[in-house]
Design a protein around this nucleic acid. Structure first.
Lengths: 261, 261
DNA sequence: TAAATAAGTTCCATATAATGAAACTTGGTT
DNA sequence: AACCAAGTTTCATTATATGGAACTTATTTA
């Protein structure tokens, strides 16, 4: 008579709790967490104790507020460094954004959504964390569509089904059918366009980053505004975009991780 | 390296495993983890399964390699945004580094070590993750000593004991006694100096960031090289440093987190 | 080609850790 | 001083993690 939720035991519950704190987006009191928690008071209390003692949560005892802990930041730094894509791509992103004087994004796929892992903006170089770590929808961003399009069919279909469509603009694709047709088109063209589908006046051209065995490693995009370029003019970046994407893919492939010390 | 686990049950073991993967610094096989693991094969296996299914680890089934997962990056982004210090301090760091044309660091205390959460370098502005998330020793960096010095006595002593001293340079403080004396001096002066204790030719002046109730929220430093300034000249920055540190402390104090949607 | 070795995965009885109702403590409010 | 709400601790019960061993692939050796 037990209800099996999708979580893996205690660890899953603890991590869900971290997500809950992250979602609230500000330091939070025990009682506030409790009202939204599936757990009884004592259980939630001990989960919080464990996470706090582990440094995954911080606790301000003056104000009795829990917040995400510094251990996360440390772990994420390690994650960024060992995600073979981001550190390798870095000089190539510099080069591309400098050459075109446009913003470039590097993303990876995360549960059907786009996780941005790096960004270059030649105009206003912006500081850490403000963009890496952000997530965006998979079905209405250039990078998202480019990555989805080149996934193995069954994985692609499964993720397309899972998208929760929301009409951000008049151009947003809002059905499985529209998206599927678009993905087929993208497979033809090798590149994906964002035609103001996510934000008005923001357009982009994107390509997947593929391994030699055609596995999707990530995605690369050049973003601009309709004030600067038309979609047609943006298409002229296709050659540079594809060249950089394939360079990153090749580098990632041959990357030998440093041997043990 | 540091052994953490004073076992918070299963969650603690799982998180220790994340640290282990992070410490290795590259994608890693099951068997390699097993040799360094206190757990039997089946236990380690299931821990990895759980963490992978939770997105805290990634698994490349082609190469059978585990790496840190994207969920970490997402959580860390949230952590950075809600760690009240970093987003608040940002404009003040800009201002300070611009005014002095020197590198400034913002750090927080993490188990007696310094976790750098932001950095400004007017010469070569550098990109995300490359510095935020890095950790440094607490006993031979300006920020570390500044924060330790202003901790409640018993917490300070406990952390001083825990330092694992290593002589980076001829100037490194390498005993509990030396460090304790230095910390007393810092409490007098209000600021800490790094006198090439961590890296040759690198010096810095640092101050703690305190709440109104004198709790240590973090630390702020101005770093330069002996080629540019002497220690004596560096001391001239004390006024600006303390002013910025206290502004950050005050802002963090009065910060009202955005209300729930 | 078979046999041997290694690497990864599953099984299941047992030990251990998590659970949650309720009692208790603390701090603030009427 | 009595009340109420928030946070913390207790302890018997239950669910979960554990780990020895058996099993299944891969990979190497005879």
């Amino acid at each position: 008579m037990k209800i099996r939720n999708n979580s893996d035991g205690t660890v899953g519950k603890a991590l869900d709790l971290l997500d809950q704190v992250a979602a609230i987006g500000r330091p939070v009191r025990f009682s506030e967490l409790l009202t939204a928690s599936p757990h009884p008071k004592a259980t939630l209390y001990r989960l919080l104790q464990t996470l706090t003692s582990q440094g995954m949560l911080g606790y301000d005892s003056e104000r009795q507020l829990y917040s995400l802990g510094v251990r996360l930041v440390r772990l994420a730094h390690a994650a960024w460094r060992q995600s073979s894509l981001a550190p390798i791509a870095r000089p190539l992103l510099d080069e591309l954004s400098l050459k075109l004087s446009e913003t470039v994004h590097l993303g990876q796929l995360d549960h059907g959504q786009v996780l941005y892992v790096d960004k270059r903006n030649p105009a206003s170089p912006l500081a850490m964390y403000s963009d890496a770590g952000k997530i965006g929808p998979g079905y209405c961003t250039g990078i998202g569509k480019a990555m989805l399009a080149f996934l193995p069919v069954e994985q692609c279909q499964s993720l397309v089904q899972q998208q929760s469509f929301h009409r951000y603009t008049a151009n947003t694709l809002v059905s499985v059918e529209q998206l599927s047709a678009e993905l087929a088109e993208i497979r033809q063209q090798q590149v994906a366009f964002d035609r103001e589908e996510h934000e008005p006046n923001i357009i982009c051209i994107a390509a997947p980053i593929l391994s030699s065995s055609k596995r999707v490693l990530g995605g690369l995009s050049i973003t601009t505004s309709t004030a600067r370029y038309s979609l047609l003019e943006l298409a002229a970046f296709k050659v540079d975009l594809l060249a950089t994407a394939s360079k990153i893919g090749a580098l990632a492939e041959t990357w030998d991780f440093p041997e043990t010390n």
